[in-house]
Simulated assay, not measured.
Amino acid sequence: MNDFQPYSYTDSVTADRPWLASLVGVQDTNTITLDLTKFTEGTHYVKSANPALQGRNVMKSGIPLGKVTASGLYAPYSGPRSEVQTVTITGGPTGGTYTLTFSGQTTAAIPYNATATQVKTALEALSNINPGDVAVSGGPHPGTAIVVTFGGQYLGEDVTQMTATGSLTGGTSPAVAVTTTTAGGGASASDGTEVLHGFLVSEISFNPGSTKAAGALLWYGEIYAEDCPIPFDPTDVASTAPGVNFHYRTR
Rank of each mutant, 00 (worst) to 15 (best):
I146T: 07
G184F: 02
A187P: 02
S205I: 03
T181C: 13
G198E: 05
L196K: 05
T179F: 09
G151T: 13
G170F: 15
P174H: 09
A125M: 12
G138V: 01
T182M: 08
T144F: 07
I146Y: 09
T172W: 07
G186M: 11
A177Q: 13
A125R: 13
V159T: 03
S137D: 10
D158W: 09
S205V: 08
L155K: 14
V148W: 00
P174K: 04
G192N: 09
A177F: 06
A213I: 10
H197F: 14
V147Y: 05
S167E: 10
L126S: 02
G171M: 01
N130T: 13
G152C: 05
G184E: 02
G152R: 00
P208Y: 11
A145N: 08
A183P: 09
T144K: 02
V147N: 00
A189E: 14
A135S: 06
P174R: 09
V178Y: 08
G171F: 03
T180L: 14
G151F: 03
G156M: 07
V148E: 00
V176R: 01
H197Q: 13
A213L: 09
H141P: 08
S190E: 07
S210Q: 12
S137E: 11
G198H: 05
E157T: 14
N128P: 05
F150D: 01
S205R: 00
G156T: 00
A175Q: 09
G143M: 01
Q153S: 15
